[in-house]
Amino acid sequence: MPDPTVKSPVLSRLGGAVRWDTSVGVLLVVLLICSFSFVENFGNALNVSFLIGNTLPIALIALPMAMLVVSGEVDLSVASTAGLSSAVMGALWNAGMAIETIIPLCVLLGVVCGLVNGLLVTRLGLPSLAVTIGTLGAYRGIAQIVLGSDSVTDFPVQYLDFGAGRFGDTFLPYAVVPFVILLAIAVVVLHATRFGRSLFAVGASEEAARFAGVRVKRLKLAMFVSTGVISALTGVFWTLHYASARYDNATGLELSVIAAVLLGGIDFDGGKGTLGGAIAGVFLLGTMQNVMSLLNVSAQSQTVATGVLLVISVLAPRIGRRISQARARGRTAAPPLTAPST
């Protein structure tokens, strides 16, 4: 982590320039290097493939979630959407439907789930937090009604292999391929297109963006639908990865996703952040958990570590900003009467 108490003016200017997301990336690299060198059993291909495989569901949902948070909204129903998709997949499979039909249907389900969230937020002007807490319950509840107590496991082997297998003896799970493709698309869309720039504009100031001609509602609706689709796909992946379709699959995943995204420097107030940072945040948390398990750190201590990291990740940039502001004020002859609100 960069030392916040830098003294030299050059470094302090640099301190202002070094963004949180870059720091998270550096932290991830440092952690990986340390783990490869010092943690027994970490560095082999099998473990790294486990690490990637187990982190993929969070990483997948983090892509649209990061963009949604950039635009100033949030979706807490992602884990329930994934659970519902898993439950529907199980129920349809039990009903004898072909898996090649089921998966597109699950995608369609994701579209519907996203549309419900998006329309409630954009058409009625409701806060997305409240809406998606509601749909979090509703989607999970429907999943429970659809599949009930069943746990469906007998999916075709080639699909299960795709969900859980890896390329030969390398550290790359098969499922990393679709993820990398989606990541590339997401990075391009967020950072190199008009659409992406509009997302930042909407997150920074919705009013200003509207006056600048951004079609705010349509933009947000599109993001909610994408989030729904990716969540539903994650539900399919989860089902295949763990070879088990259950209504309670992925319960609580929304908190992990949000924690990772925020850790990666996406500002919860919208308008700031990069996808690279978000993905670094996801893998930082995933690697930490893997390493801590290998070092026999108990699950409880891991919970505390996650929480502390989350609080630091939102506190540190703000404190850093305030320090640099204070220093900037100290340099100017006449300090302004009221501090600009952060």
Binding site: T101, P156, Q158
Partner: peptide, 14 residues
């Protein structure tokens, strides 16, 4: 996809 058939519960080999 349905029309082309596909992998259903019945053909999934155990």
């Amino acid at each position: 996809a349905t029309a082309c058939g596909g992998t259903t519960k019945d053909d999934a080999s155990k």
